[in-house]
Amino acid sequence: MNPNEIFSLALASSEAGKEGAEHHHSLLAVFVYFAFVLAIVFTLLSVAKKGFSPRGFKGFISQCSEQLYLFIENMCVGTIGAHGRKYIPFIITFWLVIFFSNVVALFFPVAPTADLSFNLGMALCSIGYVQYEGMKANGVFGHLKHFAGPKLGLAMIPITLMIFMIEVISEVMKNLSLTLRLFGNIDGGHQAAEAMSKLAGGAAGVHWIPAGTLLVPVKFLTCVVQAMIFCLLTCVYLSLVTHHEEEGAHAH
């Protein structure tokens, strides 16, 4: 399948809506792999000794990746604390996958992060890992006790039970919020570009002119910010479940 064919299929499936759902799913897989390949190529280029032409790109890729590493390191150490350094590979993987999937969304009408299922998968990975780390840091019962809030005494058992249930629900809703935020921003970008193209076409008296392309800089900003926010929120959740260990050691 050549690129033109893929692109026309993508256009058809995005316009056909539910009728093109099957195409949409196979295309989604193609674009997921596309994003992964972009991320891997970036990583390989950054570790390669020679990048592009040394005249134009003197260490460009390696500088980019070093900046990215410093950025993520700052984020992890600043949010989680000194022990946040060991989460850098996890967070940086998320950043690369989300960023390159968002970049795919800049140029194509179908993108991995403009699909709920891909985002839900990533959110489940993130929150699942947070639970795992919480259990590793506090023990299984310590982690569950963490949901029940402060110790209130015997008379307050119904309140504690209620807090526990609310905390569990909020833990589940974290998945949903991560999913919907990413999906809404990227899919919203698509819809805004489409609406703008239709509007400009209507003003010019034709069906459609690609004025939505003017949104690409704004959408690129959204790409970076959304990748950052997903990573930042993962860091915050990790810090919430793991930062009690030092305090607990002092308190008890």
Partner: peptide
Amino acid sequence: ISKLQVAMLIAMAFVELVFLLTLF
């Protein structure tokens, strides 16, 4: 500035989520 920016972005993300939830 760096600390404030991070906190600002998190708060913005939570507010923005309200609109997305409304949309859904």
